[in-house]
Design a protein around this nucleic acid. Structure first.
Lengths: 254, 254
DNA sequence: TAGAAACCCTGACGCTGCGGCAAGGTCAAG
DNA sequence: CTTGACCTTGCCGCAGCGTCAGGGTTTCTA
């Protein structure tokens, strides 16, 4: 047989056969006078075995290993390892599909969060916010929420989002107050009002999640992303929440 | 933020972030005086979005496409395509695991066909043959059976194997007769007996499956793999079966 | 105040399992 | 004689980064 024949017989491409030669899985057969490889039944048998193994999902070096150790003690281990690997793959794919399913229905309905696919929890939260009027702060906040959505570990996500839900009602108002500070100086008198309004809607539990200011890098970036007066307002709001929390706990302790 | 910070924040490696830059997914941010990249919140938001998409299983160029078309009409298509792809992957993995499962139990029991994992049908057939005494012909036949196992399409496999089952009982005898011809000349008187015995156990339906001798390449290889006298015997046996079949059909026609 | 640890930079190779192309040689049929 | 269908070797390409190598920077520590 020539290479095309044995390949067709076993159901692989000639290129693959040469690849197996090069990889040391299949010994190079004798050559004809013209340089063509001449294959026999033994080669076909071996090649078929290789194909069976690769079709199971084994890598070529694992196949080599299996072929190498006569009468496989190793085979059992390899197959078990393979099964674990396949199980992992299956889990990965299934999880992706599960995450994808709700996104698909949302997307088909034309309701995409515009910041890309996010978790169902956040989708629900954003839906609760509803259609806000044109507001730069609202847009920024949605981005931040999307960021948080991927940053926060799954285990805490539901908890975090439920905290947010409480603030959703007052969102429009707070966004408006902050938007008004876009071009203001940090010592603008409106900063104080905005800070109070923000602190009022920020749940106690949330402030800890907010970046501890100072060296964090990420915290700096967060505040740098806001206009000076907005940044000041947010900072003040956080202080207010922390103070409030301390007061609460000292009251509770008393 | 520096690259390590943003990477840790979003949950990827710095190397991946650089890769996204190079792939054009994430714009290169401004540099500090020392050459370090300096990232802001916008970058983190974008990076998180990239991560969400890649974690769904999208390729980087698809991600680029999704990021490119503002307000995705394309997103729906991409997600649908992705879901189909994932469905295919899931099917592949599950089929592998299904094929693997019986092999694992066999392997753990120490009963491996020695020619590597084969179909359950063939496993059953080989089990039916039982432990034959040391016989080169039996070994060769098992190899051929394994080859056939991967060569014939699944749809015909069960049929073929059931045909074989009828011959299993006489296998030992026929193997013996053929083994005896290993060093014989093609005109050895025992060739005839072996051919008759082989023809007697070969089911009518099987002969067509056997290589039509002559130019086939594979057929030549098959016969070349046998000793001359063995080859002659098999050839004769096939002739006998074909003749018998023709007789039968002419009788049936009369 | 020096030295080590921990970052950052660019550039380049490695991995898997072949597919595809280039630039040729060979062989059977029309 | 010319096609057309094979064969040969060799090398690039692929996805998504991991992993050096070889060099600078910053920062914490002794």
């Amino acid at each position: 047989m020539r290479i095309g024949e044995i390949a067709a017989l076993v159901g692989v491409t000639p290129r693959a056969v040469r690849h197996y030669h090069q990889a040391g899985l299949l010994p190079e057969p004798a050559r004809r006078a013209n340089g063509y490889r001449e294959y026999g039944v033994r080669d076909a048998v071996l090649l078929a075995r290789i194909r069976r193994l690769t079709e199971l999902g084994l890598g070529l070096d694992e196949v080599r290993g299996v072929l190498a150790d006569d009468e496989g003690r190793g085979l059992v281990e390899v197959l078990e390892e393979l099964d674990e690997d396949l199980a992992r793959q299956e889990a990965v794919v299934r999880e992706r599909r599960e995450r994808l399913a709700p996104l698909l229905t949302e997307a088909r309905a034309g309701r995409l969060p515009a910041d890309g696919p996010v978790s169902p929890e956040l989708t629900a939260l954003l839906a609760g916010l509803g259609e806000l009027p044109e507001s730069p702060m609202a847009a920024k906040d949605r981005e931040i929420l999307a960021l948080l959505d991927t940053v926060v570990p799954e285990t805490e996500r539901a908890e975090l989002m439920s905290l947010m839900h409480g603030a959703a009602g007052s969102a429009r108002e707070v966004y408006g107050l902050l938007d008004a500070l876009a071009d203001a100086e940090p010592d603008d008198p409106r900063v104080d009002g905005a800070a109070r309004a923000l602190a009022a809607v920020l749940p106690d539990g949330l402030a800890v999640e907010l970046p501890p200011e100072g060296s964090g890098g990420i915290a700096d970036a967060f505040f740098a992303d806001l206009a000076p007066a907005q940044s000041a307002a947010v900072r003040r709001a956080i202080e207010l929440v922390l103070t409030r929390r301390n007061d609460d706990s000292s009251e509770a302790g008393a």
